[in-house]
Simulated scan of single mutants.
Amino acid sequence: MANPILRQKLASRQFITAPGIQDMIAAVIANKVGFDIVYGSGYWTVASAYGLPDAGIASVTQMVDRMATLVRTCNAAVVADADTGFGGLLNVHHTVQAYEQAGITAIQIEDQEFPKKCGHTPGKRVVPAEEMADKIRVAVEARRDENFLIIARTDARQSEGLEGVLHRMKLYAEAGADILFPEALTSDEEARIVTSSLDKPMMANMADGGLTPIRDAKTLQSLGYSMAIFPAMTSLAAAAAMESALLNLKQTGTSLSPDVPLFNFKEFCSLIGFEDVWAFDKKWAR
């Protein structure tokens, strides 16, 4: 079942900040910090699980399996990247039902040609707007739970300009999308123009290193957004920390350094569930 919290927060106009979660270590740390909504990023999930670029290489089966594991591990509701729906209209239908059965709360579908590209890298091409609108109609019809929300993303900014974004957002809203996602806008002014164009919740992508300026939650809300994802933050932070630790080990021959903070091992054992294992072993010891 989809978690109703996302629909409830949107209805009450509470701004939503969702960190990207690339693997289950990030998931248990997010549990500790206390987020109620997280984002299952396609880019970073595929990079973490398979060491591959976000270029439509991972299959729907691989992505659903990964997202289902994320749902099982997270205390939070999961908003999941589903690329282009992994094909045509029939693929979209089955993708929606597979993600819903996995316990996802919202699914993001984009209007790129398949295979897609990361929204903040070169070479993106979009499908005709009506083709994407049909995908949204199919997605809306395929879902069984009203709390399972459909997010329509457009990558048209770089090929069709802001007018293309506005045209597509209007079509996708009319097709039944619950949330609109104008990807890779390049300024606050563009954000204001797009968010004021339709009375629909809109999502911002705060992709560190990408085309959109990074803004804080208060600023994004003032720009007219209802929610923001920060898909790259945990992955880039983890990569930087690992590089630092590995360089220290290579140079000094030890893991110990005041410049390389390490998470407490005993606490991590608890976060990952070893206390339940120890309790089980104690109960059944002979």
Rank of each mutant, 00 (worst) to 15 (best):
R144S: 12
R144Q: 13
D145G: 03
N147C: 10
N147E: 12
N147G: 11
N147F: 09
N147W: 08
L149A: 02
L149M: 10
A152L: 06
A152F: 07
A152V: 05
R153L: 12
R153F: 09
R153E: 13
R153W: 10
R153K: 13
D155E: 15
A156H: 03
R157G: 01
R157M: 08
Q158C: 10
S159W: 06
S159G: 10
S159H: 08
S159I: 15
E160Y: 14
E160T: 09
G161W: 02
L162A: 03
L162N: 02
L162Y: 00
E163C: 01
E163D: 15
G164V: 00
G164W: 01
V165I: 03
R168G: 07
M169S: 13
M169D: 10
K170S: 14
L171F: 06
L171I: 05
A173Y: 13
E174T: 07
A175G: 10
A177E: 09
D178S: 05
F181D: 12
F181H: 08
P182V: 02
P182T: 02
P182Y: 06
P182E: 03
E183P: 08
A184H: 05
A184E: 06
A184F: 03
L185C: 04
T186V: 11
S187K: 02
S187Y: 00
D188L: 06
E189K: 00
E189S: 04
E189M: 02
E190K: 02
A191Y: 01
R192C: 00
R192T: 00
R192F: 00
I193T: 15
V194R: 00
S196R: 15
S196K: 15
S197F: 02
S197D: 03
S197Q: 04
L198I: 15
D199F: 08
D199Q: 14
D199K: 13
K200A: 11
K200P: 07
K200H: 14
P201Q: 07
P201C: 04
P201H: 04
M203I: 09
M203L: 15
A204I: 06
N205Y: 00
A207C: 11
A207L: 13
G210K: 04
L211H: 11
L211Y: 13
P213G: 05
I214M: 11
I214G: 03
I214P: 03
R215Y: 14
A217E: 13
K218G: 10
K218L: 10
K218Q: 11
K218T: 12
T219Q: 14
L220C: 07
Q221K: 13
S222A: 15
S222L: 08
L223C: 10
L223E: 03
G224C: 07
G224N: 09
Y225H: 12
Y225K: 13
S226Y: 14
S226P: 11
S226M: 10
M227G: 12
A228T: 06
A228L: 04
A228Y: 01
I229F: 14
F230A: 12
F230I: 12
F230L: 15
F230Q: 13
